[in-house]
Design a protein around this nucleic acid. Structure first.
Lengths: 354, 354
DNA sequence: TTGAAAGCGCTAACAG
DNA sequence: CTGTTAGCGCTTTCAA
């Protein structure tokens, strides 16, 4: 194709200098340029189909209007990807573009990705994890980078993570408010334990304490992080003697809750009449499709993704001290009320076939 | 910070000219430069921490090693995001970076995103949909852009879509091979109907025809694209008189299949003993968690994502005529065999409580 | 074999 | 108010 048309083509055509064109096109008419000239320049520009070359501009201004978004994975947990969508959306609103890189968790890939991104002169970095983790920030990551769904093991970086403790509090409180006193925590069993596991346990215990309920160790069980694990774990607490058996289950995630539904069925327990259940994650595919629809806690992926780039771009105030903990901001996890929570049964639920 | 160190810093330090440094660092030692010099240049470069500026290089060479990936959404259907992951991976393997933009389907956003990407001088575009569609290619999209999970309404573009017809053939054939003759198609009901709906119907009918089975219109039912819709639709065919009732269900997707499982339960039918079921999409969260695990057809998201960027980068041969249809390549959808398919019951399944 | 010089397209001082 | 002059950091003829 022929030579691309540039700023000086516009200049020649409009009978002004390139500098003037630049000023006009960037609304940088500090030193008043006559409206007439401005209009002419703009019209010519659009007439001859001028399109700016961001590369050249970036070379000169040292700002490229690009952001490097590097994350461990992108497709592992289905809805975490909303962080990316939200980040991109926020970037777009501020006229920035997102370079997306997923490293598969490989430190070498990560290192080289960061170098590559730097050589592309990105204006900043978002370093994201697909689930709440503590991370050793890679050496090459510039100061000022923001951490998303991750808290730095060392060093001070703006960071945002879900308020897992708070989410658990909301969930368990809902159960207590409904009248439950025997509430089990179907925790996850993994090595290492995800941060969220302990945080949600804290929230669970906090609510019990506040409600004057003595925690029963038998009601804190663990299972593999899938429906089968949830079924097995639920089975264990549901098999306890009647006076010890829980009337409500707080599950580490929706998949465990899905298994708990199956276990309840096997035990002839109806939800929420005989047993209340609340999950975590608000995975549409599960939570909304279960019968009855599952009350659960949502992870604020969207909000966190947006937060990260807004902080990076400096268009959002850094957190006040009240909303942070160790300098990382805790994004609230809202309780999504559906139909799996009810008052505890007034009498021992009868066994029945379904 | 101080001035960035550039190619001429290396040159000065190594006692050569910038041109020489450029040659060496790009392995463009066409005109033999002594090994000694080369080594010195390279050592100095790494010693003083030289990092190339891709912007400047791109300005000069007109190749930026970037790709614009524009898609309608990114987070709608959970596993479609694998296309992005695969695309990014392929890009990385060829030293390219991906600009990710999701437009929310808004044509105006789309147009402006394409312009922005162009002004960033991307080397090419991938235009992606999150589910198999026919699209009106936006005017600004340069020739040579490749379509992903989309076929162009007009114009010739490299494009890749899943082979929905073929996937359905595999699914229904598995049912026929197991001995079924009364096979229902739980189709989706949506306006407009997704391309996949018709394509899978074709596959379904093709297998029946090949097997000498006369299609029964009563066995082609539609439901909303969720578990409830699947349950209702399955309910309708399962309520047919015994001699007309299907012994196997081919479901438009896994969510419908999930509902079919529930309907089967209500009808006292065990899977796969009394009823065989196959789904589509292979959504881990559903297919693998169902009891019994669901036999289903996988969408080749990963392969398609990779294909798109490899074709764009010219590192993959364009399709031979055999693998295409109207110039768009059909990526095979593999059947994932799990445990929901068995031989038809030898006698009428008895009603029983579970 | 290497260096000098001329830009890629744009912005930013500084004069006029 | 506007044009001239320098580059941003790199690649690439073209000479030497």
């Amino acid at each position: 194709m022929s030579r691309r048309i540039g700023i000086k083509d516009v200049a020649r055509e409009a009978g002004v200098s390139a500098a003037t064109v630049s000023l006009v096109l960037n609304d940088r008419a500090t030193t008043r340029i006559p409206e007439a000239t401005q209009d002419r320049v703009r019209r010519v520009a659009s007439d001859i189909g001028y399109a700016p070359n961001t590369l050249a501009r970036g070379l000169r201004t040292r700002r490229t209007h690009t952001i490097g978004f590097v994350s461990d994975r992108i497709a592992t947990t289905p809805y975490a990807v909303r962080m990316i969508e939200a980040a991109q959306e926020a970037a777009r609103e501020h006229a920035h573009l997102l370079f997306l890189v997923s490293t598969g968790g490989d430190p070498e890939v990560e290192r080289s990705a960061i170098e590559t991104l730097k050589s592309h002169q990105v204006d900043g970095f978002v370093y994201a994890c697909m689930w709440h983790r503590e991370v050793e920030v890679p050496a090459g990551l510039p100061a000022g980078s923001v951490l998303l769904d991750a808290r730095p093991a060392r060093g001070a970086y703006p960071a945002v993570v879900p308020d897992d403790r708070g989410g658990a509090v909301a969930a368990v409180q809902a159960l207590v408010d409904a009248g439950h006193t025997r509430i089990a925590y179907l925790d996850v069993e993994e090595d290492p334990l995800p941060l969220a596991s302990g945080l949600r346990l804290e929230g669970y215990l906090e609510v019990l304490a506040r409600a004057g309920i003595t925690p029963d160790a038998a009601l804190h069980v663990r299972g593999a992080s899938d429906a089968a694990g949830g079924m097995a774990a639920a089975d264990r607490v549901l098999a306890l003697p009647p006076e010890q058996r829980p009337t409500a289950l707080f599950c580490f995630n929706d998949r465990l809750a899905m298994g708990a539904y199956a276990a309840a069925r096997h035990h002839g327990l109806a939800i929420p009449t005989d047993l209340s259940v609340v999950g975590y994650d608000d995975q549409q595919l599960i939570a909304a499709e279960l019968d009855p629809p599952l009350t659960t806690v949502a992870l604020p992926h969207h909000e966190m993704g947006r937060w990260a780039v807004e902080v990076l771009l400096g268009v959002r105030d850094r957190p006040g001290p009240d909303e942070t903990e160790d300098g990382v901001v805790l994004m609230p996890c809202p309780l999504i009320r559906r139909d799996s929570v009810g008052p505890p049964p007034t009498r021992e639920p009868g066994r029945r076939r379904v």
